Simulated assay, not measured.
Amino acid sequence: MSASIGLPRVMRIGGGAVAEIGSVVASLGFSRPLVVTDNFLVCTGAAATMMKALESAGLSPYLFDGTVPDPTTASLEVGLAALSAHEADSVIGFGGGSPMDTAKALALLGLQGGHMSHYKAPRNNTGPALPIIAVPTTAGSGSEATQFTVISDSVTEEKMLCPGLSFLPVAAVIDYELTMTMPARLTADTGVDALTHAIEAYVSKKANPFSDSLALVAITTIGKVLRRAYLDGNDIQAREQMMLAATQAGIAFSNSSVALVHGMSRPIGAHFHIAHGLSNAMLLPAVTAFSVHDAESRYADCARALGIASVEDNDEVASKRLVEELAQLCRDVQVPTPKDYGIDSAKWQKLIPLMAEQALASGSPGNNPKVPTDAEIRDIYAQIYN
Rank of each mutant, 00 (worst) to 15 (best):
E240N: 14
E357I: 01
A252W: 02
E144K: 07
P267M: 07
A74K: 13
L360M: 15
K120M: 04
A171Y: 03
G263L: 09
T187D: 08
E296C: 13
L360C: 05
L360I: 14
A53D: 14
T44A: 11
L7G: 08
M11G: 02
P61N: 11
S297F: 00
T126E: 01
G191Q: 06
I222L: 14
S27Q: 14
M50T: 05
L106V: 09
S31E: 14
G366P: 03
I151Q: 02
A289R: 14
A198T: 06
K205M: 04
L278D: 05
A3M: 13
A145S: 14
G191N: 06
R9Y: 09
A249M: 04
A289V: 02
A286Y: 06
A48H: 12
E325Y: 11
L83P: 09
Y299K: 09
F253L: 14
G58H: 07
L28I: 00
S98K: 07
G45Q: 13
N367R: 08
F210A: 13
H262F: 06
T221G: 04
T337E: 13
I343Y: 05
F253P: 07
V317S: 08
R378H: 03
L63Q: 10
G96S: 08
L108F: 05
Y299E: 11
A275L: 01
T220Q: 14
K120G: 01
A107Q: 02
D89E: 10
P365I: 08
M182E: 07
L351M: 14
D175W: 00
L195H: 07
A105G: 10
T72G: 13
E77M: 04
R298M: 05
I274F: 01
I274S: 03
P209C: 09
A270G: 15
S254H: 07
E325N: 10
S211F: 01
I219L: 09
D193N: 14
T373G: 15
S362I: 02
V135H: 05
A270I: 02
A289D: 13
N124D: 01
T37S: 15
A57L: 03
E144L: 06
N208R: 11
F290V: 12
V335D: 10
W348F: 12
E296D: 03
Y299N: 09
G14N: 10
G191P: 08
M116Q: 02
I5T: 14
A57P: 06
T137N: 08
L7M: 15
T181L: 05
L231W: 00
L7T: 15
R239W: 02
D332G: 06
A246P: 11
V25L: 09
C330E: 01
D70I: 07
S364L: 15
S211V: 04
R32K: 15
S152C: 09
I21D: 09
V323K: 10
A375W: 00
A207G: 10
E177C: 06
S84A: 12
I132N: 03
A19M: 06
M282N: 08
S23F: 00
D340N: 11
H197P: 11
Y230I: 08
S98D: 10
V371Y: 00
S291D: 13
P353G: 12
D232T: 00
L278A: 04
P71N: 12
D38E: 15
D38L: 05
Y119L: 02
P99Y: 00
S154Q: 08
F94S: 08
Y202P: 04
H273P: 00
G114H: 02
G22L: 10
Q328E: 15
G164T: 02
V225S: 04
G127M: 01
K52C: 08
D153E: 04
P69C: 11
P338K: 08
